[in-house]
């Protein structure tokens, strides 16, 4: 009887997962074996689309760029969010205002923010070059989005403004830490950074996992920043997997190849999630 109810409760979740994820995923896999321009009859080409994608230097570049985004998220964005959370956790003057300010970019249109950054980086009228000129470092002014060496980092930097969500998740976890534990640590003589390093950081590990997953998902879906700021250029140096999929479908009308790009993106996402969960379980086992 209980099991019957259990299935009943699970039914909506299973239904939506099947209709909106499993079925489309199978359809994507199906189309990936065809040459199709979206209009004409589909022509079965076997694994040719997979070979084309794996030998396409633009796909390899998009894959690498997405990995760079993920590394920036894990190695820079999350530690930054943790540091801010630990700082705000000390209830410094105006901490609630800062919390709101940090979170604000998360509720603003990504497209609008991408345009804003486009103009910050603009060679002639950009704020960044203007500031460099203003402080006597005009020799460093450049076309940040048009030069091969700076375009990718320049499109990644705006990611930092979303640190508010990461910070809030860490703060939520910090709020669950028992006062008894904090008092015990204080009685033992722990102060400042010692509390952070030995009490708070070990106890926010579940939040680290959550943040890694959310940030990896953001990077895998990341489309607007490279699309608005550089159209994926110059010479595809800022193209991400999401933009590669879009370009293959909308610009080149290569639906089959676009679907293969989607499948590899899903696989990358799954691998990363399994890895993160595995690491988390491993730590729990320790």
């Amino acid at each position: 009887m209980k099991k019957r109810y259990l299935i009943l409760y699970l039914f909506p979740a299973i239904f939506f997962a099947v209709v909106f994820f499993i079925v489309p995923l199978f359809y994507i896999v199906y189309i990936s074996f065809f040459e199709w321009n979206g209009l004409n009859a589909m022509k079965m080409v076997g694994i040719q689309n997979y070979i084309s994608v794996l030998t396409d230097k633009n796909f390899i570049l998009a894959f690498k760029n997405t990995i760079v985004w993920i590394l920036a998220a894990v190695c820079i964005h999350i530690p930054l969010g943790l540091m801010l959370a630990l700082l705000l956790n000390r209830k410094i003057c105006g901490w609630k205002v800062f919390r709101v300010l940090y979170f604000l970019p998360n509720v603003i249109s990504i497209t609008a923010l991408a345009f804003l950054w486009y103009f910050i980086y603009h060679k002639d009228m950009g704020l960044l070059n203007w500031l460099l000129e203003g402080i006597g470092m005009g020799r460093f002014a450049k076309g940040w989005l048009t030069e091969l060496g700076t375009a990718l980092p320049a499109t990644i930097v705006p990611f930092a403004i979303y640190v508010g969500l990461t910070t809030v998740i860490f703060m939520t976890q910090l709020a669950t830490i028992s006062d008894d534990l904090k008092e015990a640590a204080l009685l033992d003589g722990a102060k400042g950074w010692q509390m952070d390093l030995h009490i708070y950081v070990p106890l926010v590990k579940p939040a680290i996992v959550t943040n890694v997953m959310l940030n990896v998902a953001f990077c895998l879906k990341n489309f607007e920043y490279p699309f608005v700021m550089t159209s994926g250029g110059p010479v595809n140096t800022t193209t991400t997997l999401a933009l590669y999929i879009y370009k293959k479908m909308m610009n080149a009308n290569q639906y089959g190849i676009s679907m293969v790009g989607s499948i590899f993106t899903v696989l990358l996402g799954l691998c990363l999630m399994v890895l993160v969960n595995g690491l988390q379980r491993g730590k729990k086992g320790d």
């Binding site: 633009n58 091969l148 159209s231 250029g233 110059p234 080149a252 009308n253």
Partner: peptide, 19 residues
């Protein structure tokens, strides 16, 4: 062709950047 048209911007940028 649609595919060549889609790659045209990349080719142009490669050319302008002396690649």
């Amino acid at each position: 062709s649609t595919q060549a048209g889609a790659e045209l911007p990349t080719l142009l940028e490669s050319f302008l950047l002396d690649q």
